[in-house]
Design a protein around this nucleic acid. Structure first.
Lengths: 215, 215, 215, 215
DNA sequence: AATGAATGAGAATTCATTCAT
DNA sequence: CATGAATGAATTCTCATTCAT
């Protein structure tokens, strides 16, 4: 009994397995509640739904914000990764871009408030996650550009901002008019493609262009 | 022009006439603070910044939400009206549409959190205001459509959702990269114009279209 | 116009008639509201119902308690007076006593909270009114005693306390079971009358007496 | 008797076991303060006097009214129970009735405002408690009636109302003239006993009876 | 003399965080 | 290590009283 414990021994009354289980239960409950109620959710409700005591919750996440950031990070990562996969699986560059947006925006609806707050509230979250997402888009952009499918002048940042912008449309419309955002995506992609005679200027003001009457 | 009126003098805390003045001071302070901190602002801070006591604030707005709604409504109305003016002043239909978005989105930045909450939090605010805005867009849409400038199949709701969607982009980027959203607007308008061979189908999925290689 | 005003001249734009009218309106409204809601009623509601401004109300009654006391005093006086009248109109001493209680208790229901508070809340109200009421009872007591109708040993204070005690019963039962208190009055009066062999001792403890079995 | 338990030691702020202790401290403090000041007491003062923080108080009683009701219920139960005991211990039916009133009314003084509010304020509290009290009286009534000691026609409700009515007398007089209410009780019991020739009619109006002159 | 807007000290209630068991 | 009771500052809202017009 008093012998130094070997680390590998099977001890059932879990010292670490439980901790992991708890941590994940907390994150899962928090993800649900943050999605439902936003960051103003009561910490005690998170503890209740995850089935742990306040003390346990605070052992894992010393501040409420720590928990929020963790959930944000996790949700964001999973979402970004699924979108990346969709792009990789596509066969040609334009389909890759299209599928990427399609997948990313479809997933956006599940992240309502979180993504919302992600952009706006409580300090800057998960810079690293955004950097990775940006890399994905950069590759899509380069690939489509090299194939001559993307309108000249379009930058990675344009595509990133378009994603966030459409994401907001998804959040607003998904419940009452699902798939309405798909029309907006189509419009934007048409505006992005190489069909357009003129490249996108660096300081594009929209009124420099006028469509052909009765085109 | 007229003789100097004694009532015009700046007197602090005049009662009857200043009920109005107080009301406006409260709304102004609330607008600022709501923009800065969102709907969680402390009511006392609004009272403090507007220079009135708690009682006065609550005489004018019996519930915190009443005040929030009032500010929301006012901001929204002013913003929508300025965008409408910009559209009316334009000479041709496409410029009207373009100027409308330009003006609306430029104004969006000033309304940060409020517009944010407008779409997402605290019940449904100001249905009437949205209805009026929608009417404006409907006219723009009809006018541009009649002139053959607008891509067939584009609806008023598309244009409305585009506005909100780009509005979000404005809010996110306005501080760190002002005018970046203008590029997105240009892209979207290009996707909207009649240059496109195919009309926008009713259930547009973006992958139905593929750009001309090396266009 | 500038001549010194004679005090007797008929001036229509009432300086004092209005004041009186206001004062009475305030008292009337306060009486109603105090009866409905007790002393926690909002002063502004009194002002509203009486149709005067807060300033006017506070000109007449500098403190809320002043108003409450005034209403208390008035209600109490009127009530006591009506009971006194009923006693005077009666022909023989016992009927006088009986009618006095009957009238007083019937009126009690209208004074709910006020009478309630009268005995219990907010300092001592209207000592003078109680003194007058006591005088009335004293005479009834003496008259019935002299006629040999009243049980020996019964004091004026006994009769006064009985009144308040039964008054409470009235307040509690008047709405749900009107006239139920009449049974209690009958019982008490029977206990008061001279039929009883033994006089009421000075320190009457109830267990000194035992009724005749199957009397 | 048992070995000294370490858990019995007076330790301030022990958590689990002291949840109970806190709860009782709160109830005790609330009972005192409610008796002193009525239902308008500041909740913070209750917290202060019971030595707990606001949060603790609100953990046990989510609304102020919950606390008030709890205190009301507890006080009422204890009081009713002590009166019931007194009645059970008596040897003959009439003494049981007498002792019951004696005990009940003696206890009434300790419950001042609370009993006051019990009858008058804040919704209907503790119907169940009243029902139990009524059962006790019902038995006393039946027992005394069967022994031929109680005046025919007297109902359980008469006795219940008499209790409340005399209770009010107790509250009013207990401080300034203790035991004065005993005289009233004696009078009422004499009115209740079977010595009276006529039974109490169903709709007893007091003037139907007239005492024997020079009884 | 009348008006009702303004005042601000309270009062009830919530919630992030700590801590004894 | 887990638990959940305890804490108390912060927050929304009320109301007796004052005061400028």
């Amino acid at each position: 009994m008093a012998v130094a414990e070997p680390e590998n021994t099977t001890r059932r009354r879990a010292p670490r397995a439980d901790a992991t289980r708890n941590r994940e239960a907390i994150i899962e409950a928090a993800a649900e509640l943050l999605a439902e109620q936003g960051t103003t959710v009561d910490v005690r409700e998170i503890a209740r739904r995850s089935g742990v005591g306040m003390g346990t919750l605070y052992r894992h996440f010393p501040k409420k914000e720590d928990l929020v950031q963790t959930v944000l990070h996790k949700d964001f990562s999973e979402w970004a990764e699924s979108a990346r996969r969709a792009a990789i699986d596509a066969e040609d560059p334009w389909t890759a871009l299209t599928d990427f947006y399609q997948q990313a925006l479809t997933g956006y609806a599940r992240h309502r408030m979180i993504m919302e707050n992600f952009a706006l509230t409580w300090s800057v979250p998960d810079i690293e996650g955004i950097r990775r997402l940006r890399l994905v888009i950069e590759q899509l952009c380069a690939r489509a550009g090299a194939a001559g499918l993307l309108r000249p002048g379009v930058t990675t940042d344009d595509l990133l901002l378009l994603l966030v912008s459409l994401g907001h449309a998804v959040q607003i419309t998904d419940e009452c008019r699902p798939q309405m955002w798909n029309r907006l995506l189509r419009i934007s992609l048409d505006g992005l493609c190489a069909d357009h005679r003129e490249p996108l200027p660096a300081d594009a003001a929209p009124d420099t262009h006028r469509p052909n009457q009765d085109g």
